[in-house]
Write a protein that binds this DNA or RNA. Structure first.
Length: 499
DNA sequence: TTTACTTTGGG
DNA sequence: CCAAAGTAA
């Protein structure tokens, strides 16, 4: 998998094109595959392949498809400014990419690596097919700070604990400085034979039409590399002041909001890393923001850690890391799940988060943990149900982060200790949304409720309650917690490795 | 990346 | 009485 030097096709004419196959790297800067293609001196063909079947079965939910539409349009426009064209095909990449390479008489196909199980399988097969056909296939590292196989224990195993993994990763050196965007792309003439399979972005039908539920997404986001760069600079320009603490506050604009940009590669984690380091260490603040910087870098690290765990164990997309959880007596109550999805649980912080997700395709990180704990603990719903909902509704939905973090919250993942993570949604809300600003923003029914009871409206004065149309709690917190701990204890009685 | 319950010590 | 600190799960 690490970069391979393939037999050079010396017999290829000098004007045989290079195909840059874009996937989760919709950007021009710090794009090693694109830079390699430009540096080769050959004419360049830029290609994106959408596989609806693959997308349906694997992690490209409806909200992420909406983002992809905007991301492709932005990349198309950015490439056009460089003098190049983004060719958009629709179908099975395994069949299309080798065929299109042959039709174009391509000397080389290049891409930036992906690490999810299905992506790896597809890319390995395509690489073999291309090589067999005498076309050079070359892949690059661009989507992570540290590729999964580069961080290993002394015994050569994968790490299972973040802090140990992070120490080893950082000891392997600083991530490479980002590459500049090419100044100009020498585009190849579009092969006539590509007409048949290149359909254009509209034809992918990535955007919802009837009903058009994406209004909230359009208000909240503008996909694209330029917008990602703006978000990054807006975030780091303040020197990350207070990030370490304020990042937990959903009522404050303290997080980077870069998750969808990283998911689709409008920005690379290396760019985020180096921009943050430069802003803090280069700034006048001296060592002041060091703690905030470390916190932000470690959040980038968590993203890589999830990738490396899934790389080591692809079955974690659907199997419990701790197999004793296979016996968990999930209730999976359909009405509970529905109330959770729609933000009608009667717990304001949970409902606010779920409504923010539905409306904007994104949820604050702290609130993600609260709603996930509530679903898997208090409602005793299988984490896979929550994972599927997040996958379909988050614009930043990423297989590795999604499954690893859901397993972590549910207690069946690495670094698990289930009883540590029964979040009390009322206490969490009081601590991290002390004025109720976040809750009132997303649950407008509670706008007139005083702060003293906004996170637990059933405790309000009856006169206030009577004026507020807001559901009663669907589960008792104490009872739900006790039920979850009892279910977990039932598993613990069975033999397992550690506590 | 927690909670809930107990103990302690100051008022 | 209450907050802070300790601790078990």
């Amino acid at each position: 998998m690490p970069s391979v030097d393939d037999a050079p096709s010396a017999d290829m004419p000098a004007d045989a094109p290079v195909i840059v196959w874009f996937r989760n790297d919709l950007r021009l800067s710090d794009n090693p595959a694109l830079s390699h293609a430009v540096a080769s001196g050959r004419p360049v063909l830029c290609l994106f392949v959408h596989d609806p079947q693959h997308a349906r079965e694997h992690a490209l939910g409806a909200a992420a498809q909406w983002w992809l539409d905007g991301g492709l349009r932005a990349l198309h426009a950015d490439l056009a400014r460089m003098g190049a064209v983004l060719h958009v095909a629709c179908g099975d990449a395994l069949a299309l990419v080798p065929r299109m390479a042959a039709q174009a008489g391509a000397a080389e196909v290049v891409w930036n690596r992906r690490y999810d199980p299905l992506g790896r399988e597809t890319d390995t097969a395509i690489k073999a097919t291309l090589k067999h056909a005498g076309v050079i296939a070359h892949s690059f590292a661009a989507g992570v700070l540290y590729e999964p196989w580069t961080v290993r224990t002394r015994a050569g195993d994968a790490f299972r604990v973040f802090t140990a993994w992070w120490r080893a990763a950082r000891a392997s050196g600083e991530p490479l400085p980002p590459l500049p965007a090419p100044g100009h792309v020498h585009a190849a003439v579009s092969p006539g034979a590509w007409e048949g399979c290149c359909v254009g972005i509209d034809a992918l039908r990535l955007v919802p039409v009837s009903p058009d539920w994406a209004g909230g997404l359009r208000e909240a986001w503008q996909p694209g590399e330029a917008q990602a760069r703006d978000r990054l600079h807006h975030f780091v320009d303040g020197g990350l002041g207070g990030y370490a603490d304020a990042r937990d506050r959903p009522d404050l604009p303290a997080t980077s909001r870069l998750s969808p940009d990283l998911r689709f590669g409008h920005i690379s984690p290396r760019q985020a890393w180096h921009a943050a380091v430069a802003a803090v260490r280069g700034g006048a603040a001296g060592g002041m923001g060091e703690q905030d910087l470390e916190k932000f870098l470690s959040e980038l690290g968590w993203r890589d850690f999830a990738v490396s765990l899934l790389y080591a164990q692809p079955e974690l997309v659907s199997c419990n890391f701790r197999t004793e959880f296979d016996a968990m007596p999930w209730r999976n109550d359909a009405r509970d799940l529905c109330a959770w999805q729609q933000g009608r649980t009667g717990y304001p912080i949970v409902d606010a988060g779920m409504r923010q997700l539905w409306r904007t395709g994104w949820m604050h990180n702290r609130v993600r943990m609260i709603v996930a704990s509530f679903l898997t603990k208090h409602l005793l719903c299988d984490w896979r149900m929550g994972e599927a909902w997040f996958r379909d509704t988050l614009v930043d939905a990423d297989i590795a982060s999604n499954v690893i973090n859901w397993q972590w919250v549910a207690g069946c993942g690495v670094d698990a200790a289930p009883y540590f993570r029964v979040f009390n949604p009322v206490l969490q809300a009081r601590r991290f949304d002390p004025d109720g600003t976040y809750v009132r923003r997303w649950v407008p029914e509670l706008a007139g409720v005083p702060t003293s009871c906004v996170h637990a409206p059933w405790t309000c004065d009856p006169a206030i309650r009577a004026r507020v149309a807001y559901p009663s709690p669907i589960v008792d917190l104490q009872g739900g917690r006790a039920r979850a701990l009892a279910a977990w204890k039932g598993l613990s009685d069975a033999p397992h490795e550690d506590a």
